[in-house]
Structures are given as structure tokens and as C-alpha cells.
Amino acid sequence: MIGCTLLVPLGLSADFITFGLSVAAIVITGVVLVQGYRDTAAIHAKLDEIVVALRETRNDVVGLEHEDPKHIRETVRRLEREAHQMPPWPTDD
């Protein structure tokens, strides 16, 4: 922003500077989104590894992030119903 302000006395119009700042904002947004995608993909891979490693779990949720949104919502609702029906965890009181 400071750099753009310094360019105004050199004859560059405010429209040109606004365009430049808009392009920079779009590029920065893209970089942030790509980094967020990487983080999410890594978390999914780690969670899939945990599900596969635990023999008591069902593997039908592995790769769920690749399904269509309707299927994901149905699976989440089913799992939430099952979780509510389970007894609470024992406490060490």
C-alpha cells in the first residue's frame, strides 16, 4: 500500500493502483486457500490412518470427504445418532 502511494506522484492514476491492489489481494487469497487445502488434506490423511489402525472401527468413513455432500450429511447424521445411543465414557472418580 505504501509502495502504491509512492507511485501516485509519478503520474500513475488511482485506478491503476486500485487494479494492482485488487490483483495482489486475489493472489494472496489464492495462496491462503491452497495452504488451507493442504492442511485439510493432511488432517484427512491422518484421521484415515487412525481409522484404519483401530481394528474396532468401521472403515466405511475412510475417503468420505470425496463423496457428494448429500452422502456426507447422511453419514454424519447416522454417526451422530449412533454416538447419542452409546453409553457415556467411564470416569475415574
Rank of each mutant, 00 (worst) to 15 (best):
M1Y: 07
M1T: 07
M1V: 07
M1G: 08
I2F: 06
G3M: 03
G3D: 07
G3K: 03
C4L: 15
T5K: 12
T5R: 13
L6T: 02
L6C: 01
L6Y: 12
L7W: 00
V8F: 06
P9F: 06
P9E: 02
L12G: 00
L12A: 03
L12N: 05
L12S: 01
S13E: 10
S13Y: 10
S13H: 10
D15S: 11
D15E: 14
D15V: 09
F16P: 00
F16E: 14
F16S: 11
F16D: 11
I17S: 05
T18Q: 12
G20K: 08
L21Y: 07
L21H: 06
S22G: 15
V23H: 05
V23M: 08
A24P: 01
A25K: 08
I26F: 14
I26V: 13
I26Q: 07
V27C: 02
V27G: 00
I28G: 06
V31N: 02
V32D: 03
V32S: 04
V32F: 10
V34G: 07
G36V: 01
G36C: 03
Y37V: 14
R38A: 10
R38I: 15
R38H: 09
D39A: 15
D39N: 14
D39Q: 15
D39K: 15
D39M: 14
T40A: 15
I43V: 13
H44P: 00
H44G: 03
H44C: 13
A45D: 09
K46I: 05
K46Y: 02
K46Q: 13
L47D: 04
L47K: 09
E49I: 00
I50Q: 07
I50E: 04
I50V: 13
I50K: 07
V51W: 04
V52Q: 13
A53T: 04
A53I: 01
R55L: 08
R55T: 14
E56L: 05
R58F: 03
R58P: 03
R58N: 10
R58V: 02
N59T: 14
N59H: 06
D60Q: 03
D60V: 05
V61A: 10
V61G: 08
V61D: 04
L64T: 06
E65L: 04
H66E: 07
H66V: 04
H66A: 09
E67S: 10
D68G: 12
D68I: 08
D68Q: 09
K70C: 00
K70H: 06
I72W: 02
R73N: 08
R73P: 04
E74L: 12
T75E: 10
T75V: 08
R78M: 08
L79E: 11
L79C: 07
E80K: 15
R81S: 05
A83K: 11
H84W: 02
H84A: 12
Q85A: 15
Q85H: 06
Q85F: 04
M86L: 15
M86T: 05
M86Y: 02
M86D: 05
P87F: 03
P87T: 05
W89P: 01
W89E: 08
T91L: 11
T91K: 12
D92R: 06
D93H: 09
D93Y: 06
